[in-house]
C-alpha cells in the first residue's frame, strides 16, 4: 500500500524537522510499521523515493534494527528479557512457557530480547512495548489475554499510542 495524501503530508512534516532529510528514515519506518503491522517492501520503496535514497539503503537500515519486522507477525509482539538480571529471576522459563502457549496463535509473536532497562521488574516482559513485571507465566498469559480481548488497549506494533478513532493494532 502506497502513502495516501494524508500520510505523505505527515511524512513531509517529519522530514521538515530535520536539518538533513535522511535523518527522518527511522521515524518514517516506525510510521510505516504502525500502519501496516510490519515494514512492507512497498513502504520501503515509498520512503526511499520520498527521501531520495535507494531502496537498498532503506532496507539496509531497516534490517539492522530489531524493532522493525519485515514480515507479518500478528498484532501483539511480546518481548521477554532473558539477560542476566532476568536470567536469575526466571526469564528463560518465562519465554519458554509463553512460546509454547502461543505457538499456534498467529496474533501473538513471542520473542526473547536483550535487556529492556527494567531490571527492577525482573522477570520483565513488554507487550507492544508496554512494560509488565515482575510476572509469573500465569500472570503473563493473563496480561496477554487481556490485550487480546481488548480489556487492555495495546499500543501499535511499533509502540506508538493508539489515537482514538484510528485503526486498532
Amino acid at each position: 500500500m502506497s502513502f495516501s495524501d494524508t500520510e505523505r503530508r505527515r511524512a513531509e512534516e517529519i522530514v521538515a524537522r530535520y536539518p538533513h532529510s535522511k535523518s527522518a528514515l527511522l521515524p518514517l519506518l516506525h510510521m510505516a510499521q504502525d500502519r501496516d503491522g510490519y515494514v512492507t517492501g512497498e513502504a520501503m520503496k515509498d520512503i526511499a523515493e520520498l527521501l531520495g535514497l535507494t531502496p537498498a539503503l532503506v532496507l539496509g537500515t531497516c534490517s539492522f534494527y530489531t524493532m522493525f519486522k519485515r514480515a507479518p507477525i500478528g498484532n501483539l509482539v511480546v518481548s521477554v528479557c532473558t539477560n542476566v538480571s532476568c536470567l536469575v529471576n526466571g526469564g528463560p522459563a518465562l519465554v519458554d512457557s509463553l512460546r509454547a502457549r502461543y505457538a499456534d496463535d498467529e496474533d501473538v509473536h513471542v520473542e526473547e530480547v536483550e535487556c529492556v532497562a527494567a531490571c527492577d521488574l525482573a522477570p520483565v516482559m513488554q507487550v507492544n512495548y508496554e512494560f509488565h513485571g515482575p510476572v509469573t507465566s500465569e500472570a503473563a498469559v493473563d496480561v496477554i489475554e487481556q490485550y487480546k480481548s481488548g480489556a487492555l488497549v495495546a499500543r501499535t506494533i511499533s509502540g506508538s499510542p493508539v489515537i482514538a478513532g484510528s485503526k486498532a493494532p
Binding site: V116, A117, Q126, N128, Y129, E130, F131, G159, S160, P161
Partner: peptide, 8 residues
C-alpha cells in the same frame, strides 16, 4: 531508545 514507548 525505541522500546521506551511510554517514555517517548
Amino acid at each position: 531508545r525505541g522500546e521506551f514507548a511510554l517514555g517517548a
